[in-house]
Design a protein around this nucleic acid. Structure first.
Lengths: 342, 342
DNA sequence: CTGAAAGCGCTAACAA
DNA sequence: TTGTTAGCGCTTTCAG
């Protein structure tokens, strides 16, 4: 009725040796019977398994890891789990890991290199077998060190110059360019851009895509219309307001959080979209089709992104394998033909 | 210039023994110098630390955990990381854990007891020190077993009948009641409810709150207006449509994903809110203020929820400590006075 | 303050 | 097929 052992006092789980005694076999036999099952007679194996079940045996990943000098652990470093993009990605990684009998230590860097470094060290201490990360772009030496230690590194969404790791990214430049081009096709010229920092490759490439579209149409880039910030919620609102005050006729927001900020800023200023300003967002999230009008977005295949990242981690792709996934432009109602105000 | 050691071949990280040799001291001294630093002369400690830095020493959590028979690992089992509510919660746990030099193995059960069981077993194998979970309500025996093994359990948002664990919840019943009462105060009588499963305590309590509000106002509960489903995205849309077809004048959605589904269903049916039907959502998310009209919600203090969960896990509160956090009704524009159609 | 040694639970190599 | 043994890296006695 009650739990076995003295309740209240933390019980130690049974060890293999105890199973061996209970089953009347040697230690090695238990190990074999419980793992591959090779080199053990069916009868013995059954006896061992019975004993293990009886005593509620739980193998110790600690002992196994120490002996084998490797673990089944995957490290995942995202930028911010409260951003649904990372949430979906992490969910995908978890699902993939569970299917392969692995578990995941998750870290969230907040785009802060110091925090990222913390996590790298931590994961190394845990002797993880591999790490999937959205790198901040710093800490190259630690990434090198990790790899030198035999830890497989896979970068998602971003790459780092000077450090080749297998990576899976979306076509950031192409996607941003297409998004901007869509606005240009609608007749917009004064197109604002609310973007992330340039030292993150995805941020840089999206801005390049934006600029490329402008250049392709012969529209000069106006620096006042290009506002950069940290991809982070905190400061986004103020930046969005600043951008709005430059009176663009359309705005490209380079991720979903920034898109939220633009909408909030719009509301603050009493402006309406797409009447007063067209809005296009890089990154799709569930709410984008719920707003009235619904948002025009460049969707990223987040499920495929995470699935590919896990595959890449567990496969033997070369270090310079860079898989690029296409984005998909979804035109809804937040963008419309430019009409001069007044 | 290149990494030390033969590049390409997975290098083994240096062990304490190697540090000991390099620093010309004994193994035990290295351990002491690198951990508490007690019982070691300042000079020796400095020498050891230098050697450790020199050789890029990374302690092995495996060795330490095996010897100490405990780890700094925290297990976290949520229902679905792609749901922003869990994303925010997980982010909070990660932040709290990092501040306390702990790391987190995250699992996502998808509300599936079998998956939850998988994760419990896995975390037990890893010899985690504690687990924070949104329990499915099943697997009581495994929770018991975990506790018997000395693993501290903290439940978040939900409790399980028949298993007392320290827990932090929000006032689900009170919050749902208040949300429903708000609708009643606006003159609504035919109030639909889109809810979660009854075997999850938060789902059950929210429905009870809804029913209590109705009962308090002398409004009979109409079972056709009460639609239950899995708190999950997949089937939510169809259920929302079904509920809409019952022609309620107002709807309570019992979490943010269900709220999304209601909005999408509304759009499908060509209905408008709050003109055709008032909408109130349990659970606040960033997009709720971005829709036009903005959503009336019952906000949960997710930051406080996760912070409390971590504190509870790391403290020594009694097993039956149940901390209940208040929710906050935020009335926006999606609810309005009932006016008979036609 | 410091060194030596035992042993945590497990796997793998070697004997039998 | 099975038992025995060594040892993974670390902490923690116990001597000195």
């Amino acid at each position: 009725m009650t739990a076995d052992g003295a309740p209240g006092r933390p019980n130690r789980p049974p060890t293999m040796k105890e199973i061996a005694v209970a089953a009347g076999v040697g230690l090695g036999t238990v190990s074999r019977a419980l793992s591959d099952g090779h080199h053990v007679s069916a009868a013995t194996r059954a006896r061992v398994q019975d004993a293990a079940r009886e005593l509620r045996y739980r193998s110790s990943a600690l002992g196994r890891g120490l002996k084998r000098q490797q673990t089944d652990t995957i490290g995942l470093i995202v930028a911010d789990l409260s951003n649904p993009f990372y949430g979906e990605f992490a969910q995908g990684v978890l699902t993939g890991a569970q299917a392969r009998n692995r578990h995941v230590i998750v870290g969230s860097s907040g785009e802060d290199p110091a925090s990222e470094l913390d996590y790298i060290d931590l994961l190394l201490e845990q002797r993880v077998g591999g790490i999937i990360a959205f790198p901040t772009g710093q800490n190259i030496e630690s990434w090198e060190a990790a790899r030198a230690l035999g830890v497989r590194i896979v970068f998602a969404d971003r790459t780092i110059d000077g450090f080749d790791a297998p990576s899976v990214v979306v076509d950031n430049a192409g996607g941003a360019r297409e998004l901007t081009q869509h606005l240009i096709d609608l007749g917009h010229q004064r197109i604002g851009y609310l973007g992330g920092p340039l030292d993150v490759s995805s941020g840089r490439l999206r801005e390049e895509g934006y600029r490329a579209a402008l250049a392709g149409a012969g529209i000069p880039a106006v620096e006042l219309l290009i506002v950069r910030q940290g991809f982070i919620r905190e400061t986004a609102h103020a930046h969005a307001l600043r951008l709005l005050d430059e009176r663009p006729s359309a705005i490209v927001a380079s991720n979903n959080v920034l898109g939220e900020a633009v909408l909030a800023a719009l509301r603050d200023r009493g402006l309406r979209y797409p009447a007063d300003v067209s809005i296009a967002i890089f990154d799709d999230v569930p709410w984008s089709r719920l707003t009235q009008p619904a948002m025009t977005v460049q969707a990223q295949p987040s499920a495929e992104l995470s699935r590919t990242a896990v595959e890449l981690l567990l496969s033997n792709e070369a270090a310079d394998a860079e898989i690029m996934l296409p984005t998909q432009l979804i035109v809804r109602e937040s963008t419309r033909t430019f009409t001069s105000r007044l």
